[in-house]
Write a protein that binds this DNA or RNA. Structure first.
Lengths: 234, 234
DNA sequence: CATCAGAATATTGTTAACAATCCTTGTCAA
DNA sequence: TTGACAAGGATTGTTAACAATATTCTGATG
């Protein structure tokens, strides 16, 4: 039972699959990887300094979470959710996240509250400075942090996936004109958490999600994706 | 040697990853693969007549869904949810599935209703004949079918995962004495669907899940498995 | 000028060999 | 007997070569 060799930390440039997945998640949330972008194995190998096998496994994970579209013999592309899929994602968020908020209200610590509060300040800051990319990421992270504070890893993973897919949806179906993220609504949710008022937190979260969904124009074939021809013709 | 693949389906002996994952899901739900079972690559290759790569990718998927525990250099084992994980799984089910039931009530067709009804008859039949394995599987499938009828693939995948993990939990934490599956509660849910009464369906589902959870003895270290060393060392 | 065929190239999918790690077993000495 | 240690076999992890498929390029033709 003697453990002589303790596992040493992995060296910097050798990431495991989860790390790669998270990096790609973040890039998608920040919309640095627009929907439809080809993710070729060779490029990813170079980007992460990693063997082809790791890349392949990461892509499989991303695909199983609906974030990447893995086509047979044709490679991996950042997913382009259809309108129907987008509706399903929002529906799932409305089903899950209010309950997440309710649980979080029951379980947050003082530390959590102040951490969330600091997070909201960063959001406001990013919005004030017009750093859209940062604002988007922080806004998504708010929801993930909330799931963290609900102390339920199952639901946390689900929220992570749904938030990422929402970024894809926003990337395709717009909401470019107006402000993306109601950080005031985030503040209201935080207030409910402070009061440990689970019902309020849940209902505020539901409203918030409805607002996000309304801002996204799912009415029709708005910003039909990503065709060079269309871009050059316009 | 593991007996997972049905010999009948040998005609198309080239399965893809999703098929393998589904087979293992089913085997776990039927509790033919008890928690902690080692899933060695060689055995799976033989069982499915498939190369090592396919097996490896399938195991990665199963692991990312919390159904298999993938240990470094030590292989894959059917997951053994801890008590805390079990509570999280049930919590997630209570958060999601009532909403699934509500959506299903809004969207079921006549065909769906009669299909579900036939399914319930099969459940009753299996229970009557004392075919415990079949009864367990059908009971799980009821929940998955419901998610199917909610017409939301995102939530359907989540329910699938949660149902499978619940089987693992039941396998570890018992509920062996009493009857596992209240098929009468399933019938009540079906009745609510017939009436297109979403609220009723949701609240019946919530009660149903609470009953399942209560039947599982999560109070303490009941049927604590399986690691002799850990037990004796602790 | 557009279209099509076919070669050339690039990318992905698969396999098999190799390397690293773990587990078992057997030996030896305290 | 017990524990340490080493050799051997078994299992997993990784790499590299090969095969299969897609894409691009070229040039000929209507």
């Amino acid at each position: 039972m003697l453990r002589i060799a303790e596992p040493e930390k992995r060296s910097e440039d050798s990431l495991d699959e989860e790390a790669i997945v998270d990096r790609i998640y973040e890039a998608i949330i920040e919309q640095r990887l627009p929907p439809g972008t080809k993710l070729s194995e060779a490029n990813l190998c170079k980007a992460f300094n990693v063997g082809r096998m790791r890349v392949r496994r990461s892509l499989l994970l991303l695909s199983s979470r609906g974030v990447v579209d893995l086509q047979n013999n044709r490679g991996a592309y950042v997913a382009q959710p259809t309108m129907s899929q987008a509706l399903q994602v929002f529906e799932a968020r409305r089903a899950i996240e209010p309950n997440v908020a309710r649980l979080a209200a029951r379980r947050v610590s003082e530390r959590d509250i102040s951490q969330l509060s600091a997070h909201l300040d960063m959001e406001a800051d990013a919005n004030g400075k017009g750093d859209r990319r940062l604002a988007i990421r922080l806004s998504g992270q708010f929801h993930v942090k909330l799931a963290e504070m609900a102390r339920n890893e199952v639901m946390e993973r689900m929220v992570k996936e749904l938030v990422t897919r929402t970024s894809l949806i926003i990337g395709i179906y717009g909401a470019s004109g107006t402000k993306n993220c109601h950080d005031d609504e985030h503040r209201e949710i935080l207030a409910a958490l402070r009061n440990m008022n689970g019902d309020a937190a849940a209902s505020l979260m539901e409203q918030h999600l409805r607002h996000i969904e309304q801002q996204v124009d799912l009415s029709a074939d708005r910003k039909r994706p990503v065709d060079l021809i269309e871009i050059l013709a316009g």
